[in-house]
Design a protein around this nucleic acid. Structure first.
Lengths: 143, 143
DNA sequence: ACAGTCAGTTCCCTCAAGGAACTTGGAGGT
DNA sequence: ACCTCCAAGTTCCTTGAGGGAACTGACTGT
């Protein structure tokens, strides 16, 4: 499909993938850890990890050779997918967090403040919401 | 689960929902239009629309009373979900667009430039990638 | 009266997810 | 040498969700 949303969903569209990515992001990099943390079936987890490695979102790395043991780490491509997770968190915090408030706080290392992520324009730096955007056909369009 | 990612995925985690949202965002607001555009089964589309309306992401609006005809429009909550879509598009454009380039271009109405969306810090306004963030337990944490 | 439109609903079938048990390759204890 | 444990999967069976096609109901236009 000539749609970047569909192509992105092709990589991480199925519901477990973002959660797997989050686990790797926060340092749960091993099969057993992820499986227990998420309560996902081992079969599906093995499939997803293989898929994410094939897509170059994760890298399978040996952390012990005897016995052979592996962990999963983010690639550059995968790290940028985590930006998507932070935007998800923002929405979830704003619209679905209960009374208690957000379960996790984000500190921006550059400025040291507790903050959240906001979509901004790459040209002018001002906030850029979906409602501030005008869509134009691009070079990869098929019409 | 005490995780805003999981809560967000609960609302739009299943693979068709983001595509449905995109269609509504670009003006395809009717059942028949969406069904034909996506090639989704009518059964599943009806289920998803009902779910998204229940979640207050979409609103079901009568646009003709006789015969009774309905369309779906974004709520405020839904419009902010579209920010998530724009971030998906950015990733898809960058990592999965082929030779041809992105299928759609975005013009930021505020500055008039063709641009893409970038995650920035709500406190200092500088770019804020997943790798620039330090995670801290928040008030809604359960440990 | 009859065909056409839109917004669904119903039915059946297939395929993918879940769960539990099993496998592999080695480490460590006795 | 043997038993047991562990991480990282693989295999097998069952159940549930998605796809496809046909049907329904409320109305319009000719």
């Amino acid at each position: 499909m000539a749609c970047s949303i569909a192509r992105t969903l092709d990589v991480i569209g199925e519901p477990w993938s973002p959660l797997i990515l989050r686990d790797v992001y926060v340092g749960m990099t091993r099969f057993e850890q992820i499986q227990q943390d998420l309560g996902i079936s081992r079969k599906v987890l093995a499939e997803r990890l293989k898929w994410l490695v094939d897509q170059e979102v994760l890298e399978r790395r040996e952390y012990s050779s005897r016995p052979p043991r592996y962990e999963y780490v983010l690639t550059g491509k995968g790290a940028e997918l985590c930006d998507l997770l932070t935007v998800m968190v923002r929405w979830g915090d704003k619209w679905t967090a209960g009374e208690a408030g957000p379960p996790v706080l984000y500190r921006h290392r550059a400025c040291g403040e507790i903050a959240h992520v906001e979509p901004c324009c790459s040209a002018c730096g001002e906030p850029m919401r979906a409602t501030d955007i005008e869509l134009l056909p691009g070079p990869g369009s098929n019409r």
